[in-house]
């Protein structure tokens, strides 16, 4: 049996989660502060993938990064970068599609921290960055881990957006969710079952692990 779709899915999930940790944390922190029209617009854009049909998002990404026109043509010409039907394209689409799974919970966690925590740090002479790194981030660790796991699991389960921008190229863009669809189309139910069960098992174990971790993180004052 070909394991490459599963390996590709895990690789895509790991890379996407890593990218979203780097981009999503500062973005969530920025959005958690005082509200403005600009922030509301950014928040709406970040949330769009939650409500948009994946095929619609995939279609627009396909159009935007097509090497035949516009921005995609420019990327291809200047940087020799082709995102459509490539793993890089899958990563970009996944990062956009999973962005709200990272940003929304982390933003809420930042908002729930008492404002006096950051203020206390500032009065101790610490910069915003030091405060973020030493005070705010460690105190949202359970949410951060939950968000990272949900992002990873969500990326494993992507189908529409990945199919639109990546196609179905074995070893390059055929991730496990597409391999399931492919196997069913070819009436290979046993293969489809193996891929499906692996995805089910991986995501279940991850989500269960997070729930167990969070249960032991939340301690009462007398613990």
């Amino acid at each position: 049996m070909d394991l490459s779709p599963l390996i590709l899915s895990l690789k895509l999930g790991a890379v996407t989660t890593l990218i979203l940790l780097v981009i999503g944390l500062p973005l969530a922190w920025g959005l958690s502060g005082r509200r403005s029209l600009f922030k509301l617009i950014i928040e709406a854009i970040v949330t769009m993938p939650l409500v948009l049909p994946p095929s619609v998002l995939g279609f627009y990404l396909l159009v935007a990064f097509s090497p035949e026109q516009g921005f995609g043509k420019w990327l291809h010409k200047v940087f020799d970068l082709q995102l459509v039907f490539s793993f890089k394209g899958l990563v970009l689409a996944s990062a956009i599609y999973s962005l709200p799974f990272m940003v929304s919970p982390v933003k809420s966690a930042f908002q729930q921290l008492p404002v006096s925590l950051a203020q206390a740090s500032y009065t101790l002479g610490k910069t915003r960055w030091q405060t973020f790194w030493h005070v705010l981030l460690p105190n949202i660790k359970p949410t951060l881990i939950t968000a990272a796991v949900l992002t990873f699991a969500h990326t494993l389960g992507e189908f529409g957006v990945v199919l639109m921008i990546g196609g179905n190229i074995p070893g390059v863009t055929r991730v496990a969710s597409i391999a399931v669809y492919n196997s069913v189309e070819q009436m290979e139910y046993a293969t489809a079952n193996v891929y499906s069960f692996c995805l089910l098992a991986i995501t279940f174990i991850m989500v269960l692990g997070v729930f167990i971790y969070n249960k032991y993180q939340v301690k009462g004052p007398l613990d």
Partner: peptide, 12 residues
């Protein structure tokens, strides 16, 4: 040196 009413201690 600021002593906050809610203490503002760092849980971590």
């Amino acid at each position: 040196g600021f002593v906050f009413q809610d203490y503002a201690l760092f849980p971590n």
